[in-house]
Amino acid sequence: MSIQHFRVALIPFFAAFCLPVFAHPETLVKVKDAEDQLGARVGYIELDLNSGKILESFRPEERFPMMSTFKVLLCGAVLSRVDAGQEQLGRRIHYSQNDLVKYSPVTEKHLTDGMTVRELCSAAITMSDNTAANLLLTTIGGPKELTAFLHNMGDHVTRLDRWEPELNEAIPNDERDTTMPAAMATTLRKLLTGELLTLASRQQLIDWMEADKVAGPLLRSALPAGWFIADKSGASERGSRGIIAALGPDGKPSRIVVIYTTGSQATMDERNRQIAEIGASLIKHW
């Protein structure tokens, strides 16, 4: 058993032996400061991975655009179909130039040979490839079927209504393609630790998130040596930015963190910096 498999397999085991986890309101002070700095709403939640207890939250039940963070949920739905014998990670999917949409750094290189379902999930999560996400959405029946999958998990909040890139429109008060921090954190925890997916599929999902290559300026920039993080970021119109993550010290995840912001006029660099500073406060007061 690899170190990674050891880590995921023991998450339920550690729940019975973990020390009490204490919240630190200092992080919420930073979240509120980020709102002031960005001139935008910020949603935040910090969840204990083992118990599911909410440690801190700010606007946990307000809607925010999901942006590309939905791609983790999408690959969770794909893995659920794999577990049920309805899909194979090794199945190759062929597509054409007409299928390519904006920001497809991986799929645009494989027009001649296509990509496997496994490769598409990797591209969608680690590189946020939009065509990969659309191709995967097609395999499960489209955005409405992803919403149905989430409903069956008990998440009646999170919804996907459109495809890439239209889902990134982020119109104020538009509930399409949105979630709430509390709903996203709970759903992510179920995917990573619950019985919905097999152990192998849970491991695969967290491996893809751990290999994320496009979230460096966010929480990863504040991470001390030896800490673990598996994450997925997102960005969209109207100053929207977000990240969902499982992270913790000693090389294993122990908390879920979800951060969303929307409605800012700030630059992408400034949005990144504010999220990184929230992460730094979280780690300092861990």
Score class of each variant (00 low, 15 high):
residue 53 K to D: 13
residue 92 R to H: 15
residue 203 Q to K: 15
residue 218 L to K: 00
residue 126 T to D: 10
residue 198 T to E: 11
residue 265 Q to P: 11
residue 172 P to S: 10
residue 211 A to H: 15
residue 66 M to I: 09
residue 73 L to A: 09
residue 48 D to A: 06
residue 122 S to E: 15
residue 240 S to G: 14
residue 170 A to P: 09
residue 240 S to I: 10
residue 186 T to G: 12
residue 90 G to M: 11
residue 221 S to Y: 09
residue 44 Y to G: 01
residue 78 V to C: 05
residue 221 S to R: 12
residue 86 Q to I: 13
residue 244 I to V: 13
residue 55 L to P: 03
residue 18 C to Y: 11
residue 150 L to A: 08
residue 20 P to N: 13
residue 126 T to S: 15
residue 3 I to K: 12
residue 143 P to V: 02
residue 39 G to Y: 07
residue 68 S to R: 02
residue 278 I to K: 02
residue 56 E to K: 06
residue 17 F to G: 11
residue 148 A to D: 10
residue 77 A to G: 07
residue 61 E to Q: 14
residue 207 D to S: 14
residue 22 F to V: 12
residue 22 F to E: 12
residue 201 S to F: 13
residue 279 G to D: 02
residue 12 P to V: 12
residue 188 L to S: 05
residue 79 L to C: 05
residue 160 L to N: 03
residue 183 A to R: 06
residue 68 S to V: 00
residue 205 L to V: 04
residue 43 G to M: 00
residue 175 E to H: 10
residue 81 R to D: 07
residue 62 E to K: 06
residue 187 T to P: 02
residue 179 T to E: 00
residue 126 T to R: 07
residue 97 Q to P: 15
residue 59 R to H: 09
residue 55 L to Y: 08
residue 205 L to F: 13
residue 179 T to S: 06
residue 8 V to G: 11
residue 243 I to A: 01
residue 130 N to S: 00
residue 126 T to Y: 03
residue 235 A to T: 09
residue 267 T to L: 07
residue 219 L to N: 03
residue 172 P to V: 11
residue 177 D to N: 04
residue 79 L to P: 00
residue 268 M to T: 07
residue 129 D to G: 01
residue 122 S to R: 12
residue 14 F to Q: 04
residue 88 Q to W: 15
residue 237 E to W: 05
residue 173 N to D: 13
residue 54 I to T: 10
residue 63 R to S: 05
residue 126 T to H: 04
residue 50 N to I: 14
residue 19 L to Q: 15
residue 179 T to L: 01
residue 11 I to W: 15
residue 21 V to R: 15
residue 12 P to C: 14
residue 226 G to W: 03
residue 66 M to S: 03
residue 73 L to S: 05
residue 60 P to Q: 12
residue 19 L to K: 11
residue 166 E to V: 07
residue 240 S to H: 08
residue 285 H to N: 13
residue 167 L to I: 10
residue 144 K to R: 15
residue 57 S to D: 07
residue 81 R to Y: 07
residue 11 I to V: 15
residue 271 R to V: 12
residue 201 S to G: 09
residue 43 G to V: 02
residue 246 A to H: 02
residue 90 G to W: 12
residue 246 A to E: 04
residue 264 S to N: 08
residue 146 L to Y: 00
residue 129 D to W: 00
residue 285 H to A: 06
residue 197 L to M: 07
residue 9 A to N: 12
residue 247 L to A: 03
residue 250 D to I: 07
residue 224 P to H: 04
residue 55 L to H: 06
residue 144 K to N: 12
residue 229 I to C: 09
residue 60 P to E: 15
residue 143 P to A: 03
residue 206 I to K: 09
residue 219 L to M: 06
residue 221 S to I: 09
residue 270 E to V: 10
residue 53 K to L: 11
residue 187 T to A: 05
residue 135 L to R: 02
residue 186 T to C: 14
residue 103 Y to T: 05
residue 47 L to G: 02
residue 20 P to H: 09
residue 265 Q to I: 12
residue 3 I to V: 10
residue 96 S to C: 11
residue 4 Q to S: 13
residue 91 R to S: 05
residue 46 E to G: 04
residue 162 R to H: 08
residue 201 S to V: 05
residue 137 L to Q: 01
residue 269 D to A: 13
residue 269 D to P: 08
residue 6 F to R: 10
residue 56 E to W: 00
residue 236 S to G: 03
residue 267 T to Y: 05
residue 236 S to I: 03
residue 4 Q to E: 15
residue 169 E to D: 12
residue 174 D to N: 05
residue 165 P to H: 03
residue 156 H to P: 10
residue 80 S to H: 14
residue 223 L to V: 14
residue 237 E to L: 09
residue 247 L to H: 01
residue 238 R to P: 08
residue 11 I to L: 13
residue 150 L to V: 09
